[in-house]
Write a protein that binds this DNA or RNA. Structure first.
Lengths: 330, 330
DNA sequence: CAGAGAGGTACCACGATATTG
DNA sequence: ACAATATCGTGGTACCTCTCT
């Protein structure tokens, strides 16, 4: 910068003003500085800037399960929004979701003195860990539940699960069984809650859930358990992978989907339209969720009112894996 | 840091030595400093450090197609490896893969003065863009081809495609048709090359390819085209999504997979084992690729010999979507 | 007189503030 | 009042010097 100042024949401070557009610079000097900047290919030094301003213009993301569809989409959304706002995105990957590694990951980011933190790890541990860790940095959590909160970006998965379950009930099924996600995930409880709500709204007592692990193999295992339960005609799986595995297992057990048994998934992962049968499922715009989270963080950084954003809403995508309840065998 | 020095009754320089473990500090002073550090919860300031050392201890990643299975896995690997090495990972998401946005993304990262850049965008444009952009920062490209190079981490997708094609030929199919990825992707050419190689090794003239777009819908479209071509009995799809779509389309056309037609995919995405039929495919350990890329960058940063790493090798995962060629109809 | 441990000083590249023209 | 400059502070590290065995 001093080189630029020298070449333009001004003080480095004037250069700073021009570069940051802070005004109070005569057109003539601005012109001279800009020429010098171009000539020297000057780029400002973020570290020095950070040192002087105590702002890094970077946000940190704590992620877990990046290989999952939702989180990776959301991450792309975050990165995009951050880029447009002139922020850089610093990524931390969680090895485990216990409180300790959460705290460590957040600590890492704080050490990097990020201006804000987005926690993209929708697990219970994240919530409790964040209560323990006392952070003086703006922080936003992805929250797949229903409760708005100034530190959360909410995807209303409760509503999504309700939609899926209600759809099956509307098709005439007397009840709906649920293949849930693994314990410890916020999405698991949210989807269970929505499923319960939909059943109870019609006075139906929710049957026991079967716990999967988000994978197709897990879903298949759950379906095997369900296929020996009498009167199972409709199943809501907590994600598409498990729905895929479940459909396969039902078929292997001699139960045709959707003729004998209806299945609805959750996520609308790429390809779910091409499953056999095409999967009826619930779609969220996860990239939008990411963008909102980033936007929210920027407002918090700017000290703005933390406006708890309306939740991102789901869409039910009706395809062929769920049909009217089979007629009773005569 | 000066506070720590004051509390410990030493010079700030000694504190620096202790914090960085540069040695030359007496045990007694080290002890005093460490106590002071703990008491004051001192954490060093990365911006100041960066300013003084001209190193940021962060690497930049230029990504494209994060929603795809391979890249997102690789990204997780990178983040992990970086974390262990004490680096932070700065993520830039590409809007488009033309030369211009590549250059812009890299420019962003350079503005952030990262110590190294990993380009996780396996497209032709990345290659050409990188030739144009003159970067004085260590840079590593993901390269899904076969040519080792000091700036590349190679996944030998040519070999993977050969494996897939040879498997089909070994099953007795007279030739193998290929549903390729879209033009402009390095993986597309690599997989075409491998497929050609395997055919030519047996003196078979490669038939025309059908170009897809990585999606299941695209794969289905390609399969529709192929199903009217006579004598198509084996198809190698450039990724699992397209294979999924293709299998569906073949079935819709009255062609059973694998009885009438064999299909092999590429990637081994989660769930491919639960497709109907379970998909025979080619697996790469993309997380490992990510880890290697990060490791490679660190060596380059350290000024080490750029040892062109051996490529990551594929595994053929044999499942049920490919069988012996159907007997000729009598 | 080495050599090791400790301290002192300059500097990194910028922004904020006060001061000068 | 306004534009431009000088000076200082930011939190570290690099390098040189000094002291004391």
């Amino acid at each position: 910068m001093i080189d630029v100042a020298r070449l333009a024949g001004v003080s480095h401070q004037s250069v700073s003003r021009v570069v940051n557009g802070s005004g109070g610079v005569s057109p003539e000097i601005r012109e001279r500085v800009e020429r010098a900047v171009a000539q020297l290919r000057y780029r400002r030094h973020p570290a020095a800037r950070a040192l002087a301003t105590n702002r890094t213009f970077s946000i940190g993301v704590v992620s877990f399960g990046l290989a999952q569809y939702g989180p990776s989409e959301a991450l792309a959304g975050i990165a995009r929004e951050a880029q447009e706002a002139g922020y850089s995105t610093s990524l931390t990957s969680l090895l485990d979701v216990d409180v300790e590694s959460m705290a460590e990951a957040v600590g890492h980011l704080i050490d990097d003195s990020v201006d804000g933190i987005i926690v993209l790890a929708p697990v219970d541990a994240a919530l409790t860990a964040m209560e323990g860790v006392d952070v003086d940095v703006p922080l936003v959590l992805f929250y797949p539940g229903a409760h708005a909160h100034e530190q959360r970006v909410v995807t209303d998965e409760v509503r999504g699960a309700e939609l899926a379950t209600a759809h099956l009930l509307d098709l005439g099924h007397p009840t709906v069984h649920h293949i849930s996600g693994p314990e410890g995930w916020l999405g698991t409880s949210a989807r269970i809650a929505g499923w319960r709500l939909a059943l109870q709204a019609r006075g139906i007592e929710p049957p026991a859930t079967v716990e999967g692990d988000w994978t197709a193999a897990g879903g298949a295992g759950c379906a095997e358990q369900l296929s020996v339960v009498p009167d199972v005609s409709a199943v809501f799986a907590a994600n598409d992978q498990m729905a895929l595995g479940a459909m396969k297992a039902f078929n292997a057990a001699g139960l045709s989907v959707p003729d004998d048994i209806s299945v609805v998934g959750f996520d609308d992962i790429p390809g779910s339209e091409y499953f056999r049968p095409p999967l009826t499922t619930v779609r969220f715009d996860f990239a939008e969720v990411g963008r909102r989270a980033a936007h929210h963080i920027f407002e918090l950084i700017a000290g703005a009112r933390p406006d708890p954003a309306r939740p991102v809403v789901p869409d039910l995508i009706v395809r062929d894996s769920a049909r009217h309840r089979p007629l009773a065998v005569i």
